[in-house]
Computed example of a mutant assay.
Amino acid sequence: MKQLFALVFAGIVGGLITLGGYSLLAPQPTLPVTQDNTYAQAVRNVNVSPAMANAPFDFKEAAAKSMPAVVHISSKIAQPTSNRQDPFRFFFGDSYGGGQPQGGTGSGVFYSSDGYIVTNNHVVANADEVEVTLYDNRTYTAKVIGTEEKSDLAVIKIEGNDFPTLDFSNSDEAEIGEWVLAVGNPFDLTSTVTAGIVSAKGRSINLLGGGKAIESFIQTDAAVNPGNSGGALVDAEGRLLGINTAIATRTGVFSGYSFAIPVNLVRRIADDIIEYGSFQRAYLGVEISELDGDYARELGLPITQGVVIEKLVEGGSAKMSGLLPKDVIVGVNGREIKSVPELQEIIGQAKAGDIMDVAVNRNGEELSLPVRLKPE
């Protein structure tokens, strides 16, 4: 009897051991999974497109906006003058011949939908005939409304309405390194778009002869060649940022440096030409030079950037407002001034009668003076 009980007990124990082993080795039933919302959100973010940077992935939209607003300009002069000293001749596609009608080609940008077009003065200067060809190949005869030689700008007009225009950017806020497009007609290749970045601002290249010239170019490395002159420099959103004007080159073709007139200055001059036929310029009434390290040491100043007033014009705005020779202009209306081109640009954008808050360093101390600008 005892032997039978022992056998039964051993069987029970063995069965329990077998059952336990099976439980450990058998597949576990699938249980409901509770999703962690925080984790799920993080996973979804992996496949979300990143926020758009300042530069788009490509420039298709900007190009599509800008090309219809840029025109081809052909000008003819019946009796050409000597062009031996003409710094702009590399922008014209046709050769100059003595005694023959002088021809040139360039670009322009619609300034308003009723046919006003802004371009460079050197594209249409002294022209007897100006012909404009639109993006869709329509051709018009244009009238020169007015020119401003000291900034190399001109406004021409064709008859009609509903012409395509561009929104305006704010060239004061343009930043070095941002993407830009140059749109124009290089070598008579119509509607050509090239890309680059803003390489520098407030650049003077002594192109317009100094003196009363306004040179504060936006420098870019977008390819600009003969025929681009007067065309559009646009930002990555397709807004007008400047008017392409010149290239620095030893060969006559693009070598990596091109220059555009900032659109804020373009608008100021173009508006006057359209309203009055000429630029109604305001003047500070000073002769100036640029401060550098050597000049700063000579003047005993703790700064090395700014614009030194060398001479005051009798009866001019600066003298009447209390500015003095050897004052160093370091700001205007809250904008920092480091160079002569920057000062020329901001004064060029102002109107006669405007009151400018001029910050100067006088003998090492900074003070601010209100200056009411007078016309020339």
Results as ranks from 00 to 15, higher is better:
residue 149 E to N: 07
residue 265 L to Y: 14
residue 309 I to N: 08
residue 176 I to K: 08
residue 300 G to C: 13
residue 162 D to Q: 14
residue 306 G to I: 02
residue 159 E to Y: 02
residue 25 L to Q: 12
residue 350 A to P: 05
residue 62 A to V: 04
residue 197 I to Y: 01
residue 115 G to L: 10
residue 18 T to C: 12
residue 63 A to F: 01
residue 338 K to C: 01
residue 288 I to H: 03
residue 294 D to F: 13
residue 210 G to I: 02
residue 263 V to N: 05
residue 272 D to H: 12
residue 246 A to P: 03
residue 238 G to S: 11
residue 302 P to N: 12
residue 230 G to C: 09
residue 48 V to Y: 08
residue 177 G to T: 01
residue 201 K to F: 03
residue 185 N to C: 10
residue 289 S to D: 14
residue 88 F to Q: 02
residue 315 G to F: 00
residue 283 Y to V: 09
residue 337 I to Q: 09
residue 107 S to Y: 03
residue 234 V to W: 00
residue 154 A to M: 07
residue 132 V to P: 11
residue 74 S to Q: 14
residue 345 E to A: 15
residue 305 Q to M: 12
residue 25 L to S: 13
residue 39 Y to C: 01
residue 376 E to D: 10
residue 34 T to H: 06
residue 126 N to H: 12
residue 60 K to F: 01
residue 19 L to G: 15
residue 338 K to L: 10
residue 285 G to W: 01
residue 140 Y to A: 06
residue 161 N to Q: 15
residue 371 V to E: 04
residue 306 G to H: 03
residue 313 V to H: 13
residue 168 F to K: 13
residue 291 L to K: 13
residue 189 L to V: 07
residue 72 H to E: 14
residue 271 D to C: 04
residue 127 A to G: 08
residue 231 G to P: 09
residue 335 R to W: 07
residue 157 K to N: 08
residue 66 S to H: 02
residue 138 R to W: 03
residue 296 A to K: 10
residue 56 P to I: 03
residue 336 E to H: 07
residue 143 K to Q: 12
residue 171 S to Q: 02
residue 321 S to L: 06
residue 101 P to I: 00
residue 298 E to S: 15
residue 306 G to F: 00
residue 71 V to A: 08
residue 243 I to G: 12
residue 27 P to A: 07
residue 302 P to W: 02
residue 42 A to P: 00
residue 252 G to W: 10
residue 306 G to A: 09
residue 12 I to F: 14
residue 62 A to F: 06
residue 63 A to K: 14
residue 148 E to S: 14
residue 146 G to K: 06
residue 248 A to E: 11
residue 1 M to Q: 09
residue 104 G to H: 01
residue 289 S to K: 15
residue 28 Q to R: 14
residue 205 I to Y: 04
residue 193 V to T: 10
residue 126 N to I: 00
residue 25 L to V: 04
residue 195 A to I: 01
residue 35 Q to T: 12
residue 155 V to S: 05
residue 277 G to D: 06
residue 238 G to N: 07
residue 304 T to C: 05
residue 130 V to T: 11
residue 203 R to S: 07
residue 40 A to K: 11
residue 180 V to P: 03
residue 125 A to H: 12
residue 118 V to F: 05
residue 160 G to V: 06
residue 291 L to V: 06
residue 371 V to F: 02
residue 216 S to V: 06
residue 244 N to H: 04
residue 366 E to Q: 15
residue 269 I to V: 15
residue 136 D to S: 07
residue 332 V to K: 10
residue 350 A to Y: 02
residue 255 S to P: 00
residue 299 L to W: 09
residue 145 I to C: 06
residue 229 S to Y: 04
residue 176 I to N: 05
residue 311 K to L: 02
residue 231 G to W: 05
residue 36 D to I: 03
residue 105 T to L: 15
residue 233 L to C: 05
residue 10 A to V: 13
residue 42 A to V: 10
residue 321 S to D: 08
residue 363 N to A: 12
residue 72 H to Q: 14
residue 352 A to D: 04
residue 325 P to M: 11
residue 176 I to V: 15
residue 173 E to T: 07
residue 37 N to V: 05
residue 191 S to L: 03
residue 313 V to Y: 11
residue 116 Y to K: 13
residue 30 T to G: 02
residue 77 I to F: 01
residue 250 R to Y: 04
residue 136 D to Y: 12
residue 208 L to A: 06
residue 85 Q to H: 09
